[in-house]
């Protein structure tokens, strides 16, 4: 069985608001998927429905071909929720021992500590005395405790410092290489670009883009070639080439927008423009994100 997760025509309506509107997607084993989207786009609602914390108003969700409440499903998933969760009154070590006892084949305690960067000192600390970032690390360790097949993380790196964040993605990549299926939401686009093979872009409860980071970037962002040249030099000679969509000067630098940047380079040398300090700008994810989630839909 290759398909780990499937959502079919899932909608969630709250009293005054449709938070998720008729979405469908599926995930194969070993896929690492990022869920992106502005605040209120429906990311947490979707994740909550996948986990069985919320019931879809209509539509169907299957994990490992079963309902999420089933025991064998619960044994195979690990989660970090958007809200930090801890159990008061126990030390980190005790909580880890406790949660590990729920699973048939938990990860060894030592591995959990190494993978999440918890320190000896952290282990002895009671949860009510932890800092925000330490709580996050604990939550990460709890998510991994059962050695899950499928990991579901809602904004996992919020509140982590740079080192913890690096450690987090290192660990995630290790698991991805082992063939684990991972789905996470984030507002840090670079994280999605670096770590996900697939991006689901949410907007107003719908999925407005679904593809590899590369595909999404190339779908909407304009590419450009820019260079420096003698301000006296006329560029008229370039104007009649059909590959060029737009050309303008800004602070002595010339910008040429085109989908075929290689062709433009060829032209620059053919026409002997005297271009130097040439830069090729292919769109970044941030630009793509802005265009796809902006109010006017023409961009798509």
């Amino acid at each position: 069985m290759n398909e780990i997760l499937r959502l079919e025509n899932v909608t969630k309506s709250f009293k005054y608001k449709t938070a998720v509107n008729n979405i469908s997607f599926s995930m194969k084993k070993g896929e690492v998927t990022a869920i992106l989207g502005p605040n209120g786009a429906g990311k947490t609602t979707t994740i909550s429905m996948i986990l069985g914390l919320l019931k879809p108003t209509t539509g169907d969700i299957k994990l490992f071909n079963s309902q999420s409440q089933e025991l064998h499903v619960r044994q195979k998933i690990g989660t970090m929720l958007q809200e930090v969760s801890v159990m008061p009154g126990l030390t980190i070590n005790e909580i880890l021992v406790l949660i590990r006892s729920y699973y048939p084949e938990p990860l060894p305690l030592k591995d959990l500590v190494n993978l999440t960067g918890l320190t000896e000192q952290d282990l002895k600390t009671r949860t009510e005395k932890l800092s925000g970032g330490q709580k996050r690390r604990l939550n990460f360790a709890l998510a991994l405790a059962g050695n899950p097949e499928l990991m579901i993380f809602d904004e996992p790196t919020v509140g982590m410092d740079i080192t913890s964040r690096q450690r987090f993605w290192q660990t995630i990549n290790t698991f991805a290489n082992q063939g684990k299926t991972i789905i996470f939401s984030t507002h840090y686009l670079q994280e999605a670009d670096d770590n996900a093979q697939r991006i689901l872009l949410f907007k107003d409860g719908s999925i407005v883009a679904d593809g590899t980071p590369q595909q999404i970037k190339s779908r909407i962002s304009k590419k450009a070639v820019s260079f420096l040249t003698d301000p006296e030099k006329s560029l008229e000679i370039l104007y009649h080439h059909s590959e060029i969509e737009q050309i303008f000067r800004k602070n002595n630098r010339v910008y040429i927008y085109s989908d075929h940047t290689d062709k433009i380079l060829e032209l620059l040398f053919q026409e002997k423009i005297g271009a130097h300090d040439i830069q090729i700008e292919s769109g970044n994810l941030e630009e793509a994100f802005r265009q796809l989630t902006s109010e006017n839909k023409e961009a798509i």
């Binding site: 069985g52 914390l53 619960r74 989660t79 809200e83 801890v86 709890l142």
Partner: peptide, 21 residues
Amino acid sequence: IRMVQERTQGWSTFIRLTPLP
């Protein structure tokens, strides 16, 4: 009091996601 604590701190939700019946 413990029930309220566990609910407000998100622990009850987390426990629901684990295999503990």
